[in-house]
């Protein structure tokens, strides 16, 4: 079983987001990169599967600042190969371009399963998993929250909005967009990461020239404007409660 996990780094929302002078993109100097949360779940899911039935887990990540930490953390969890994709991503990257760049690399690896996070919070042109599946000519299932492999098939549980869950079967190789791993991403102690830094190596593969076509074009970017729509209800607890009830009734919710 060979599982390839392409992951992405996204702007850390803990930091204040600043729009650059062009008014169309984030000011990259102020951005701090962090692994996209669903991608973290994809890694966890891959490791869980490896722990259960063996195999090899390969992590791929485009070269953003902090990518080494992401890769080493994955290695500390149990990933076997770490691949950093180098290229000029600073001037803009989209899911189409990344999927095209990933396609030959992933293909060469000959995976049984490709796990990606189902979405990124800064993605404007759809999930990378679906695009990659298209370019690789593999089936794709998104919003996956559980995988078990039987022979050359995988049993998937997929989440739908409204709390529905479906079980479906897919033949391998396939690409899955993971929304949550079967258990929350584990904590890796710093000492383990530091040890891994000494013992594991990061391979580099070049992305070549990026083909950015096919994605949405940003014409203007701005932080959400705050409006003074909130009304503060003050007074004694009982009075406040009564007022809230009245408002809810007014809206016909009670």
């Amino acid at each position: 079983m060979k599982i390839v996990v392409p992951v992405q780094l996204v702007p850390d929302l803990v930091e204040e987001l600043v729009v650059d002078k062009s008014g169309k993109a984030l000011d990259l100097d102020t951005v701090r990169w962090i692994i996209s949360e669903p991608d973290d779940h994809a890694i966890e899911q891959a490791i869980l599967m490896k722990e259960k039935s063996g195999g090899e887990v390969i992590i791929l990540a485009p070269d953003f600042e902090g990518v080494d930490d992401v890769l080493f953390a994955a290695a500390a969890k149990g990933a076997d190969r770490l691949v950093k994709i180098t290229g000029d991503f600073e001037s803009g990257l989209n899911a189409h371009a990344l999927a095209r760049a990933l396609q030959p690399l992933v293909k060469d690896m000959n995976p049984d399963l490709v796990l990606t996070g189902v979405q990124t919070h800064n993605g404007l042109d759809g999930p990378i998993g679906a695009l990659l599946a298209e370019y690789l000519q593999m089936p794709y299932i998104g919003y996956v929250s559980g995988v078990s492999v039987q022979g050359n098939k995988a049993l998937i549980s997929k989440d739908y909005p409204g709390g529905l869950k479906a079980e479906m079967e897919v033949s391998l190789p396939a690409v899955l967009g993971v929304s949550s791993a079967e258990s929350a991403p584990r904590y890796v102690p710093i000492s383990k990461i530091r040890m891994v830094m000494k013992t594991s190596k990061v391979e580099e593969q070049d992305a070549g020239d990026l083909d950015l076509s096919g994605a949405a074009v940003v014409t203007r970017m701005s932080p959400p404007e705050s409006a003074e729509r909130a009304t503060m209800i003050t007074g004694k607890v009982d009075d406040v409660a009564a007022k809230i009830v009245a408002i809810i009734q007014e809206q016909g919710l009670l």
């Binding site: 102690p189 710093i190 530091r194």
Partner: peptide
Amino acid sequence: GEEGLFEM
């Protein structure tokens, strides 16, 4: 008990 993080 997170000694590595403490050291960091």
